[in-house]
Design a protein around this nucleic acid. Structure first.
Lengths: 162, 162
DNA sequence: TTGTGAAATTAGTTGCATATAATAATTATA
DNA sequence: TATAATTATTATATGCAACTAATTTCACAA
């Protein structure tokens, strides 16, 4: 079974291949902020496991299974990042969290997040309740009749007419 | 810095203390599905790190810092599990995912999830849009004028009056 | 063609988390 | 209380993932 870290490596290798057409140990080392020797070692392991084709001092390519893992990992990442951003998490944090969570979500939960993002995005304008949530997030107060506890409307500060 | 696994151990130790008042190696071993020797070893490490007070063949208690980690880990877990269940993820999966995610979320994202759950729960009845989302999840179709693409209402299959 | 510098690899180590097998301590029971 | 059964601990080993230091390879310039 593929480890979380192998998923990380496969993801960046695929990204570098897409960007530049080839992959150096140095680049992966930079991307993942690990030493070059760690990259070499991981390459050897992943070659043994059949996720990449690696030859010393040479190039690296992904096997079919490596490609599939890279693809699905990146897809998960995208779903989670989008989802978090919809809820209002800022890009940097959404990114950071998505990189962690991508490895551990059950397919069921992933599907829910996917559907949720679709549900929001298929509408041109973002739904009212989402604005309401953002408002709640900022102020702790509700907008809308259902949930008003005072007769003071938080939107424009005027009395509601009852 | 505390590791993810240490957080797991601290959480179950606290839970067992709450449940039964004391903790056996055996119980932790059972809870986490690891061998007793692994538990002993981890207890030694966590004692060294100052998260628990441990003496051989004797009892285990949490230090203040251990308590704080257990508390905050459990709190995170609760927030995430609730959040996922609100979105419709079933209990078992929500649980499983929460146990993984609890270790890796940024405070920012955690706050967002917390607020979101509050936003939903402070209302007695679940908001309409959430039903709409659940409906979308099941059928792939939208309920509500904003997003209707046909004139067939997905709720009762009758024509909308225009 | 050969020497140099950058890049990559190997060798050796560490820390975390686990396991099995063997041993020791504790608790329960006859 | 002595013995049996349960529980816990040590000793030893494994796998993953990282590191530093030393070495090797490669590509390019002189």
């Amino acid at each position: 079974m593929v480890t979380e870290r192998e998923e990380d490596y496969l993801k960046v290798v695929q990204e570098l291949l897409d960007e530049k057409g080839y992959v150096r140990v140095k680049d992966v080392s930079k991307s993942l902020d690990v030493s070059p020797s760690s990259v070499t070692e991981m390459f050897q392991r992943m070659d043994d496991s059949g996720y990449i084709n690696y030859e010393k001092y040479g190039g690296v390519t992904l096997t079919d299974s490596g490609k599939e893992i890279a693809r699905s990992t990146k897809e998960k990442y995208g779903v989670i990042r989008d989802f978090l951003q919809i809820l209002g998490v800022d890009e940097k944090m959404a990114d950071e969290d998505a990189c962690k969570i991508e490895h551990v979500l059950t397919p069921e939960t992933l599907k829910t997040l996917t559907k949720f993002a679709e549900f929001i995005n298929k509408n041109k304008k973002s739904p009212v309740w989402l604005d309401h949530f953002r408002y709640y997030y900022e102020t702790g107060q509700y907008i809308g009749e259902n949930s008003m506890t005072s007769d003071q409307c938080p939107v424009h500060g005027k009395k509601k007419q009852s």
